[in-house]
Nucleic acid binder design. Structure first.
Length: 454
RNA sequence: GAGGGUGUAGCUCAGUAGGUUAGAGCAUCAGAUUGUGGUUCUGAGGGUCGUGGGUUCGAGCCCCAUCAUCCUCCCCA
């Protein structure tokens, strides 16, 4: 058979892994610097932990795991019947009761609900793990990808939001990616739905207006008209959407206040944004920002890269009662996520990776044959004890082949110890960048490599 | 779930109107060069033309189906 990868997955070769690690390291370092603590959760969860948390669309995209033992003969009949029900979109236990995790937030909420009396609140955790979505792959979209999440639970303070916005700003500036950090507030969207007499169906409205920059005003209004909104409400929404054309946070805030003068819930959201802007003036208010995940209740955040066509590379928001879904209420939280795979794609396309991310291997010892192996081997151990990474070519093949290998692997120094060197108790070192070669004692090799003066 | 593009060597792709034995570059390996890499030169290996059917005297090329992959929409990181 010829091997293939499952759709939407990738292998990462050495060079790619190094670049990815560069991103992970920057994010992890900042997470720690901001006081977040690490957490890991299983690759898969019980299906009912995940179902119903991400909206209808999300449920469809959860990778379900087939139960074990379905192939056992005595289970054939019941499996067949259960599968019939699955085909009708009905219950799925008996066929599947576990699923690959879809994001890091819900498993975190599950963890907090299970451990809340052990945790010191407010609890700040970060988590760097893969998640899986049964989506159709396309540009910037994978079925397996990494998220890096930072969340704070057990605090309602907007300081947390401000910190997370600062975290975004710091990380993306270190990665040298130009981004637009957009914020909005679900309370404003709730207020808008209320004002339209459509309070129960906030998501329909928000999902439609979220598409403004993609499909344009006319189509958004058309879509909402089909949802059954009155002409009066459509007029209100048009007025609201006009705000998206305005530049400048303070102007937008003022207009929002006027527009929602008689909608208390919206005013609350506006007030929250105003406070946040005072902490983080670098972010932009985006009144059309909605976000599909239905557990957000307050601030919502999204990060878009500038100068490239790519979906969001980060997102998050406040959720006031996520653990309530697991029977533990009154634990509010707020969090953000970094999409490493898209960040990688952006950096690759805009050539933002530093040059010198190649291997750390510093020295290769040439293999001159059995007579010299023991001596070379002991030199190699000495170098390693000195913290210099090195390897000896394992086969006594032709000299130029060994050098070719060193060249391809970008090894900066090649050590040659053959007959002459052994007799003289000297070592020949060739600098592969300059091509120059010198003979010296081992101690000098070590100190000069350490100083980078070889 | 809806719509579109592409499948020829390990990779990127040529392949002209359907016509003998399917090509190039890169990569790999070997030699030129038995203690000095990248450059250069010479040579070699490597293909069920995604798969199955059909049209035809004849199919890499045309038709149908199927699979894979990429892109767009929906939704998202």
């Amino acid at each position: 058979m010829k091997p293939t990868l499952p759709q939407g997955t990738r292998d990462f070769g050495p060079e790619t892994v190094r670049k990815r690690q560069y991103i992970f390291n920057i994010i992890r370092t900042q997470f720690e610097l901001f006081g977040f603590q690490p957490l890991e959760t299983p690759a898969f969860e019980n299906l009912d932990t995940l179902m119903g948390k991400y909206g209808d669309e999300g449920d469809k995209l959860i990778f379900k795991i087939l139960n074990n033992g379905l192939e056992r003969p005595e289970k054939h009949e019941s499996s067949r019947q259960l599968f019939e029900q699955v085909l009708q979109g009905k219950l799925e236990k008996g066929i599947t009761e576990r699923a690959l995790k879809y994001d890091l937030t819900i498993p975190f909420a599950r963890y907090v609900a299970m451990n809340h009396n052990l945790l010191t609140m407010p609890f700040k955790r970060y988590q760097i793990q893969p998640v899986w979505r049964a989506d159709r792959p396309q540009r910037g979209r994978y079925r397996e990808f990494y998220q890096c999440d930072a969340d704070v639970v057990g605090s309602r303070s907007l300081i947390n939001e401000a910190e997370l916005l600062q975290l975004y700003t710091t990380v993306f500036s270190q990665l040298k990616i130009d981004v637009k950090i957009c914020i909005n507030n679900r309370k404003i969207l709730v207020g808008l739905a209320e004002a339209c007499g459509f309070a129960g169906n906030m998501m329909d409205i928000t999902i439609a207006i979220d598409k403004l920059d993609k499909i344009g005003l006319d189509k958004v209004i058309e879509e909402l008209r089909n949802k059954g909104l009155t002409e009066d409400s459509l007029q209100k929404i048009q007025t609201y959407l006009k705000l998206s054309e305005i530049e400048g946070n303070s102007d937008i805030l003022q207009l929002l206040k006027n527009f929602f003068a008689e909608t208390p819930i919206a005013l609350e959201g506006i007030q929250e944004i105003e406070t946040l802007i005072s902490f983080a003036p670098q972010v932009s208010i985006d009144v059309t920002l909605a976000r599909g995940l239905n557990y957000y209740t307050g601030t919502i955040i999204e990060v878009k890269p500038l100068g490239i066509q790519m979906g969001s590379i980060g997102g998050g928001g406040r959720y006031d009662d996520l653990t309530g879904l697991f029977g533990v209420s009154d634990i509010p939280g707020v969090g953000i996520s970094f999409g490493v795979d898209r960040i990688y794609d952006v950096m690759e396309e805009l050539k933002l990776f530093p040059e010198n991310l190649e291997g750390s291997l510093q020295v290769m010892l040439v293999n001159f044959g059995e007579t010299f192996n023991a001596y070379n081997f002991s030199v190699m151990q000495t170098l390693r004890n000195e913290g210099i990474s090195c390897e000896m070519y394992p086969e006594p093949i032709k000299f130029d082949k060994q050098l070719k290998y060193a060249g391809k692997r970008n090894i900066p120094y090649v050590v040659l110890i053959g007959e002459d060197e052994m007799n003289e108790e000297m070592i020949s070192v060739k600098n592969f960048t300059t091509g120059l070669q010198h003979k010296m004692r081992l101690t000098e090799v070590i100190s000069r490599i350490k100083q980078g003066s070889l």
